[in-house]
Amino acid sequence: MFVTVFALIIINKAGGLIYNRTFHEGGLNKISTNDYLVLAGTFHGVHAITARLNPLHPPTNRTSTTSSTAAAAAGAGGAPGTHLTRPDPPSGLEVLETENFRMQCVTTLTGIKFLLFTDTTQANVDLAIRRVYDMYSDYVMKNPFYQLEMPVRCDMFDRKLASYIREINNR
C-alpha cells in the first residue's frame, strides 16, 4: 500500500487551529493537542513574515511588461491610459519540503489556511487541497450549527474527508 497523505490542519484567519486530523499513524511524529495549537500559531506568524519577504513581486507595479517608462510615469503622476491592475497579494509560504514529508499550504481569499502534509512523492497535491477546500465550503460553511472561527466539529465533513483521503491513500 502506498501511503501518501499524512495529515490535514486548518488554521483560521487569526492563527487559531480549527481542525486537525491525522490520516496515517507513523508518517509524522505524534504531538499533543497543545503542540498543535502552538504549531498553528507559529506557522501563522511565519507565513505572515514570508508574505512580506518576497523580492520577486514588488507590490507597486506588475504591469510593466511593455515599458518601464509608462510605469514610471504612472508612479509619478498617474498618466492617462496606463493600464494599472491591482497586483496579486503576495501568497507567502506555499510549500515546505523535507526529506520525510512535504507540506503544502493554501490560503483562501478569506484568510483560512489549509495545510496538507504528504509524502514527498505525492503528486497533484494542489488538486487534493482544492478538493478539501470544496468540502470545507460545503459541509462546514453550509452547516447552520457551525460558528465562524470556531473549531470544526461536523460529522459530515469528517466522513467525506475520510473517504476522500482513503481513496487517495489506497491508490
Partner: peptide
Amino acid sequence: YISVPREMSQLNC
C-alpha cells in the same frame, strides 16, 4: 450539508 452537533442529536432539520 447539515451535521447536527452531538448535544442536539434528537434534532432532525
